[in-house]
Design a protein around this nucleic acid. Structure first.
Lengths: 312, 312
DNA sequence: ATCGGCGCTTTGTCCAAGACAACGGAGTAT
DNA sequence: ATACTCCGTTGTCTTGGACAAAGCGCCGAT
């Protein structure tokens, strides 16, 4: 992302906020381990790059999982990334210090009940750093959204709690997303909702999930007319279009919208229907991606067909 | 507060958190003005007392109102307290900066027309970094939103362009917001929209603007029932509630909602109506903040009343 | 084999003094 | 009045050093 016109530069304070690594730590790591060694302004002030921030986030993740600072900072970023993705706990058992997605949702609910936006944000951020994009979406964000809905139906949470949580989670999802670098050759997928559908959290989660698995998501916001979806898909030359459908959606208009989309989109462009409301979708030519595993399958299939057509 | 020993002791880090005065500032004030001059642990680490924290809070409030640091730190605490209670504003309010969006908005429109999300993001980010939160909102974000609406009405931009731009701008606004740290003692303001209102960009802009001017905004998302707004306001102990109203809003239900809010909220809690649709609002007890200057005025008034009532 | 001490190492935070950019006020020239 | 320069103020950044807490590894005793 954004590497064409001179990469973004960050001061030490901004990097500290973006990565959760204190300014003191950044300096002492530089002194001891040689990374990060940012450029300097004429007066000596450190100027960090996007690449620095990205690698620092990786390191922050490693630390949360149990790596030792020196090892994580000195490690080769690529292999470190592989290590983290292979999901291997370096520290064997660990009385589940901070990385316990199960208790995490409980903690989040408690913070929301307290109307404590700051604590909720902190919890989400450290979880996101520890787990990485995909696990964060699958193990935290998605269950938390369901749980909030359930607690609301049980009457334990008020509407305002749900609103507050949605806002905070959406912010965190976008923040995480904005830091991920895009692969240049990655297939592009357009995410949006049909007219009348105003629930956008599913889009944000899907987008972050994709961004972490080598796909370039493009968000078009909610409540988009079908012809506009088609136009955007053509203009962006996307490989697939993802539609998020909530439980509250009117199934008939959804079906109609999906069929219209399927007819209007080029056959080479896949059409995915995700979200809790997508279980009811039966339209042909539409891939249902209700669970994250299914979404994963769709991504894999997309990449494969991409690779094969590209070979021609 | 006991005599010699036994009072609570705080490390520099804790004091920074407690008072909102950064550790750097604490040290440099000590060096320059002689206060605070805490005791030391054998190894030299500073140990602050309750009295230090109390006086620092006072100083922080004085700074907020416009005192110069050196004066406030050196001032006798008792007379400083009296000064603050007498509700005198030292610094006159801010002169409105000249609205000069350069060609930035034009460039943004061009990028949106190209469906170029990356370039749009780049442009927005560098503008935000260059201008700072408030000027970014006033001189870029706000005019750009208006301009996109105008171009859409002229038929130059399609709905999808507007959706795309809204998504990107909202992301950037939240990103900028997340980098700002909150003042501890800052008044809290709740931002949301009334039921039926789904346009949230105004909220994001207002929130970022506020965050840059010493107020802690709390976003509650769009389309919130009035009783939920009231509950949230009470739970968060906010000083004001900001309602964003778009041009498309139904003026009658808006008026009804505002009146209901005004009746249900404590009299001490201000009620602001902002956004393009707020020009038509006539409800009494509601402060109209249609322009950014008006919002500034409301913020100033809020801080003043805050400072005077806090003298308990 | 397991457990409890005991040093060595790692790591994060704190310290001191200095530098400087951003800002505002005061004085001066146009 | 307006614009300009100069200077004091203020907050944040810098370096390199110090150290406490926690982690880690080793060793001997049970």
């Amino acid at each position: 992302m954004r590497r064409d016109t001179g990469t973004a530069k960050y001061s030490i304070r901004v990097v500290a906020r973006l990565t959760g690594v204190s300014a003191d730590k950044l300096r002492v790591w530089e002194r001891r381990y040689g990374f990060p060694s940012p450029e300097r302004k004429p007066n000596g002030a450190r100027v960090y790059s996007d690449a620095d921030v990205e690698r620092l986030r990786l390191i922050a993740r490693a630390l949360e999982v149990g790596y030792r600072a020196g090892d994580a900072v000195r490690a080769d970023p690529m292999s470190l990334k592989r290590q983290l993705e292979s999901n291997v706990r370096v520290v064997p058992d660990v009385e589940e210090s901070s990385v316990n997605p199960d208790g995490a949702v409980d903690r989040l609910i408690a913070h929301i009940l307290d109307d404590d936006a700051g604590a909720t944000t902190n919890e989400l951020r450290s979880l996101a750093n520890a787990l990485g994009p995909q696990r964060f979406v699958v193990e935290v964000a998605s269950p938390a959204v369901e749980r909030v809905g359930a607690e609301w139906r049980r009457g334990k949470l008020a509407v305002r709690h749900e609103h507050l949580f949605s806002t905070i989670l959406a912010t965190e999802l976008r923040l995480q997303h904005s830091v991920i670098d895009e692969d240049v050759g990655a297939p592009v997928v357009l995410f949006t909702t049909l007219p009348g559908e105003n629930h956008g959290l599913g889009l944000e989660m899907a987008a972050l999930y994709m961004a972490g698995s080598g796909v370039s998501p493009r968000l078009l916001g909610v409540d988009t007319p079908t012809d506009q979806i088609v136009e955007a898909a053509l203009a962006l030359e996307v490989s697939a279009v993802g539609i998020s459908i909530s439980t509250a959606a009117d199934i008939e208009s959804v079906e109609a919208g999906l069929l219209h989309l399927r007819r209007s989109l080029p056959t080479g462009v896949a059409l995915w229907a995700g979200g809790a409301g997508a279980t009811r979708v039966v339209a042909s030519g539409v891939t249902r991606t209700v669970s994250w595993v299914e979404l994963d399958g769709a991504i894999t299939a997309l990449k494969e067909s991409e690779a094969s057509t590209q070979a021609s």
